[in-house]
């Protein structure tokens, strides 16, 4: 069989530069990021249904299993390892306070979804929060504690 196709691309991850790197054409972004040690990005289904791999691409939440690494050419990416600004530290404190995670596998995606909710600066009801996170699967908590944590974040910001 012929050698696998690859593509030469550049992007940044949490400000770190990846210049002229070679990625297999078929590799999705989550696999590439994980191979580079950004293992906070988790894979739960590889079809966009669980939300565990959600990261930030040019300021927006995307499923990194539904983006090819090659498509990230020229973009700025942020993974959970780079969620260290003041707002996200507050979010993490609220997640901790409400025990808004158990095993932690969904947390990176859940935090990214929370980040996008907060950046939209809308006051949301609990039902609306549930709607916003309804693409992120959590088997452990039953979601209530996550809604509690996000609600507190929204109240702090607004």
């Amino acid at each position: 069989m012929a050698a696998n196709n690859s593509v030469n691309i550049s992007f940044t991850v949490n400000g770190e530069r990846f210049n002229n790197i070679n990625v297999p054409s078929r590799q999705h972004l989550a696999d590439y990021l994980r191979s580079q040690g950004f293992t906070g990005t988790h894979l739960g289904c590889e079809q966009g249904a669980c939300g565990a791999c959600t990261i930030e691409m040019d300021g927006k939440a995307v499923r990194s299993c539904l983006v090819l690494a090659s498509q990230a050419n020229g973009t700025n990416l942020k993974t959970v390892e780079g969620f260290d600004d003041e707002m996200m530290e507050k979010v993490k404190q609220n997640f901790l306070k409400h025990n808004a995670f158990q095993c932690g596998f969904c947390s990176p995606g859940m935090l990214m979804t929370t980040k996008e909710i907060l950046l939209n600066k809308k006051k949301l009801t609990r039902d609306e929060i549930r709607s916003e996170i309804s693409g992120n699967y959590c088997r452990c908590t039953g979601y209530q504690s996550i809604v509690d944590a996000i609600e507190e974040c929204i109240n702090e910001i607004n």
Binding site: F38, T39, G40, T41, T79, V80, E81, F83, K92, F95, L96, F101, C103, G104, F105, S107, P108, L111
Partner: peptide, 9 residues
């Protein structure tokens, strides 16, 4: 468990 919120699991 905060490590999970920092991607450190």
């Amino acid at each position: 468990a905060k490590k999970h919120l920092d991607g450190g699991g």
